[in-house]
């Protein structure tokens, strides 16, 4: 579709522009390998959450996942607390790391399945459901951690995820890219992907066509939960400590990234590559402003401006390419509901 190619181009252009701008105001140090690596290692946490939000939105019917960061924190906290009772990070670093990673992933998956089940079977509106689970996850993390930060430590494997590079690219970013590629492949090549996008476009038609709607919904939120778990691992690896209330601002930022990536909040359309580029763009802009010593408030303003620009341009482009579609969905179209 012409629409998605256009958005992709726009995102690439924005990213390019930000890199150039950064280089200009910093006399080149913005593009130093240290900074590029530093920025690259800041993207994965929020990027993974944004992909989760994207999937939830694509499912349609008001799909969204507000519990991402809370689940990420919960995964880190619970996994750290439980695993450190069995394995010690200092005496058996690799075993601890593996146990921690497995634990975090499992908890993320479980949390996601809970979300999916509540939404699919109890038919709770996604925004209300994930708002509730967000508070539940955070509350559970407070209880398990006693309200304090939990030290995960720096056992070898985790430490290298947090700090090391492979071919000059931070390992955390590689993990993020890999996860994104996996999700993209899922959407492109599997029945799940087709079902998800069609369902988001027209849930009623999906029902009539016999799609396994509940299965798709649970899978969607489960994947989002899984990504949250991975985000929790990366947070732990980079910060050495995990805490129940880390990243509370990520909730809205993840949604911002998804919307800026052209994901349709009403469902049916979303592209992982766009989400990745969008996350990178927001990171670049944020770091750019920090480099320039500008107040954080300017950053919020700049993000808002970027989002509005993107949405405005997006509307015109869509109108330009596909006038027929916009009006075909007009309710007063000659639908077969004439006098009977």
């Amino acid at each position: 579709m012409g629409k998605s190619a256009g958005q992709l181009v726009m995102l690439i252009v924005i990213n390019g522009l930000l890199l150039v701008l950064g280089a200009l105001i910093s006399g080149g140090s913005f593009l130093s390998s240290y900074n590029l690596q530093s920025m690259a290692s800041q993207v994965p946490e929020i990027g993974l959450l944004a992909i989760g939000v994207m999937l939830a939105m694509c499912a349609g019917q008001g799909g969204i996942d507000l519990s991402g960061i809370a689940l990420a924190n919960l995964s880190g906290v619970v996994s750290a607390v439980i695993m450190s009772t069995f394995v010690s990070a200092s005496t058996d670093p690799s075993a601890f790391s593996i146990a921690f990673i497995a634990g975090a992933v499992l908890i993320g998956l479980l949390g996601g399945i809970i979300n999916g089940a509540l939404i699919a079977y109890l038919k709770i509106t996604p925004i209300l459901c994930t708002l509730g689970t967000q508070m539940a996850f955070m509350g559970l993390a407070v209880v398990v951690s006693g309200g304090k930060a939990v030290t995960v430590g720096s056992p070898a494997l985790l430490s290298s995820i947090g700090n090391d590079m492979v071919l000059q690219v931070p390992i955390a970013f590689v993990i993020f890219a890999f996860a994104a590629a996996l999700v993209a492949a899922l959407l492109r090549f599997t029945p799940y992907g087709l079902w998800l996008m069609l369902m988001g476009t027209n849930p009623k038609a999906a029902l009539y066509a016999g799609f396994p709607k509940n299965g798709v919904l649970v899978a969607t939120y489960a994947i989002s939960g899984l990504l949250s778990g991975v985000a929790g691992i990366i947070i732990a690896a980079r910060n050495v400590n995990v805490k129940f209330d880390y990243g509370s601002s990520y909730l809205l930022i993840a949604i911002l990234i998804a919307v800026m990536a052209g994901v349709k909040p009403e469902g049916g359309y979303g592209r992982v590559l766009s989400v990745v580029l969008s996350a990178i763009a927001l990171q670049l802009m944020s770091s750019l402003l920090n480099f320039g010593g500008l107040s954080n408030f300017v950053r919020d303003f700049a993000w808002g401006l970027l989002l509005l620009t993107f949405l405005a341009v997006g509307r015109y482009r869509i109108a330009g390419f596909l006038p027929s579609i916009k009006r075909q969905t007009n309710p007063s179209a000659p639908s077969p509901q004439g006098p009977k």
Partner: peptide, 9 residues
């Protein structure tokens, strides 16, 4: 339109 087709697809 409402029950059969996925119009944007």
């Amino acid at each position: 339109l409402a029950e059969g087709l996925f119009l944007d697809k």
